[in-house]
């Protein structure tokens, strides 16, 4: 769990010992299995993990669309399971991507509908609609029937319909799915702008790791209903960056050197080139890289170069390998003695 750095800021979302279990084909599936987390206002949080990890179930439980089997979700101090409509006054969501609006209505009619349904009396409606149309570049499309728009345009309409409700918290399930690169970048820019300028808290689940890496303050990695890593995206990537080194040595790696390395570290890969060998070695503590290089030299290896591998969320997810495990900061890293 990421600690709340600012003691004066209460978390806007608080999840305690959350369990969501379903009966499926005469067996109980624990889609969410004992999750604790807190989310601070104004942050962008990405839920990451493979299919079936529990991302969408967690998202829907935060929204009250799924009832918890155990534990509790509070949004802005309100228990979502007990008083969903009170909690809904602070939130909006786009869960079905392009399908979250009425395709038989025009863009403007949709925005008017969702504004009047969910946000009547919340300031100037026309101004909110104008701002949402501007933010998602829908001015030229505002009188078009949604059915006639492209998938990316429909996705933008869904987001505008959520935004027009003036939410404090915005939940998004796979927001960049189906968008082209330009559309995805535009969306990412809008979300960052929303969090920075309006203090909107954004919780999104996505397989688009580039998007998460680009815009999220924090990444929560889920697997099999558990949180396996939870930290700032920067720290998540740093963990990997300082963990894996690429070493290029002259000639082949001698069996004694290999044995020495494998005793204390993990060889991620070993590629023999024409007259040299490239090794990727996981080193749990950056300071121990010197022990590694010293041991290799002692076993006759001539090291040509050493570099840390570029970190990315993709690499982090690969390294976690999605086995049931302890949270990242507590679990033994690969290759550790």
């Amino acid at each position: 769990m990421t600690e709340n750095d600012d003691p004066t800021t209460d978390p806007i979302i608080s999840v305690e010992k959350l369990v969501v279990a379903y009966e499926r084909s005469e067996e109980t599936v624990r889609a969410v299995d004992g999750i604790d987390l807190q989310i601070d206002p104004g942050t962008i949080v990405g839920l990451i993990g493979p299919n079936g990890a529990g991302k969408t179930t967690l998202l829907k439980t935060l929204l009250g669309l799924v009832s918890p089997t155990g534990g509790r979700v509070r949004v802005d101090g309100t228990d979502v399971a007990e008083h969903p409509h009170r909690a809904h006054a602070t939130m909006a969501a786009v869960l079905e991507g392009a399908r979250s609006t009425y395709w038989r209505l025009t863009v403007r009619e949709n925005l008017e509908f969702f504004s009047r349904m969910n946000a009547a009396g919340r300031g100037d409606e026309r101004e909110r609609i104008r701002a949402a149309i501007d933010r998602f570049n829908l001015t030229d499309l505002s009188d078009e029937v949604v059915n006639d728009l492209s998938r990316g345009q429909k996705q933008r309409v869904s987001l505008a319909a959520a935004l027009v409700q003036d939410p404090e918290i915005l939940f998004l399930d796979e927001p960049t799915l189906g968008l082209d690169t330009e559309g995805s970048l535009e969306l990412q820019s809008s979300l960052v702008d929303l969090a920075e300028q309006h203090g909107t808290t954004i919780v999104l689940s996505s397989h688009d790791l580039h998007a998460i890496e680009s815009i999220c303050d924090r990444g929560i990695v889920l697997d099999d209903g558990h949180v396996v890593a939870d930290d700032t995206v920067e720290n998540l990537v740093d963990v990997f960056r300082t963990e894996v080194y690429e070493l290029v040595i002259e000639g082949a790696l001698s069996p004694s050197a290999r044995g020495e390395i494998e005793r204390a570290y993990e060889i991620v890969s070993c590629t023999e080139l024409r007259d040299r060998t490239a090794l990727e070695v996981a080193v749990p503590d950056g300071n121990r890289i010197h022990d590694l290089t010293g041991a290799m030299v002692a076993h006759g290896s001539q090291i040509e170069s050493v570099r840390t591998l570029e970190g990315s969320l993709e690499a982090v997810l690969d390294s976690l390998s999605f086995e049931r495990s302890e949270p990242l900061e507590r679990r033994p890293l690969r290759g550790a003695p």
Binding site: H88, A89, Y102, R104, E109, R116
Partner: peptide
């Protein structure tokens, strides 16, 4: 959402008028 009452008469009238308008718009469009 300070002061916002999601079940005020204004909110309920606004919601029902939005639903009726939606239905009429769809009926008229098709």
């Amino acid at each position: 959402m300070n002061g916002y009452c999601s079940r005020s008469p204004t909110a309920l009238v606004s919601a029902v008028s939005a639903l009726v308008r939606r239905d009429l718009l769809i009926m008229r469009r098709y």
